[in-house]
Design a protein around this nucleic acid. Structure first.
Ligand SMILES: [Mn+2]
Ligand SMILES: [Mn+2]
Ligand SMILES: [Zn+2]
Ligand SMILES: [Zn+2]
Lengths: 139, 139
DNA sequence: TCAGATTTTGCAACATAGTTGCATAAACTA
DNA sequence: TAGTTTATGCAACTATGTTGCAAAATCTGA
């Protein structure tokens, strides 16, 4: 049995073909993927409907198996959640290659927040140039 | 001469009817507005084309007269930049009423960032329940 | 194992948010 | 005010999702 299947069964949900395939794609990706990228990579594994893939991605988020990151542009990106990392962390998106990666080391500190506001979630997105893209530009 | 006109002339750009009107709407708004909300409020001031309004909103951002905030949902929201606030600050969006406001007091601290990444911008979006919506819910 | 109940999928249509090309209109400059 | 530059309006197009619904897959209890 493959890893994706196993993860889905562990949480007591139905490991269908699409769920297993989509989670597998996310697990193999090094960074967060947008819907078209997921679809593209699924082509190697069979025929999958785009609407179903949208639904499965949301399903993965609801069940905590993936998280959703808003990058540049209008499309959300999805990344498999590693069991050992907390969900609350910052993300970095490279202006050059567009890749998004988790910055699990950074804990956004919230001081000075008006006390009458109830905080439910925090999103910290940092944009710039990543290591790979930066090393080719002379400094 | 109205405020919006004056601001546009101060930066040496053409104060056209649409620019003046759109900036005026943003200046009068208490929070960040999405494109349809801007269009709606413009109806009191005349007939404006939606594409032109999109272009003017981007123009305002480029010229530093407004800033763009990504809230819940896919639409960006725009808010007039107050001359006395720095552009780098956090935003709070209420889950109940959807309003977005600037949290100019909060400075996102970036420690632990991998040193080979070049940071160009930081976006800190906090979601929860605002004062107005929270006070009606018994605690 | 299998009938019935529940959930998931695929397809078509719809929705929302924004962009592009281009001809016309407005604003600026000399 | 003539010529040049810039902004606008309109139509068509793109990107990113969402919804309704019938068919297929999956599960459950007898
Ligand atoms: Mn992450
Ligand atoms: Mn702000
Ligand atoms: Zn890069
Ligand atoms: Zn509120």
């Amino acid at each position: 049995m493959n890893k994706a299947d196993q993860i889905i069964q562990e949480i007591g949900e139905r490991p269908t073909a699409v769920r297993t395939a989509v989670l597998g794609v996310l697990l193999n990706a090094g960074s967060a993927l947008a819907h078209p990228e997921v679809l593209e990579r699924l082509k190697n594994l069979g025929e999958f409907d785009r609407v179903t893939v949208y639904r499965v991605l949301e399903w993965l988020v609801i069940h905590g198996l993936a998280h959703k990151v808003a990058g540049t542009g209008r499309a959300c990106r999805f990344q498999a959640t590693h069991p050992d990392t907390t969900h609350r962390h910052a993300h970095f998106q490279c202006r050059e290659c567009g890749k998004i990666c988790c910055l699990t080391e950074i804990e956004p500190k919230l001081t000075n927040l008006p006390e009458h506001f109830t905080v439910e979630s925090i999103e910290l997105n940092i944009k710039g140039v990543c290591d790979d893209c930066g090393r080719h530009i002379p400094r």
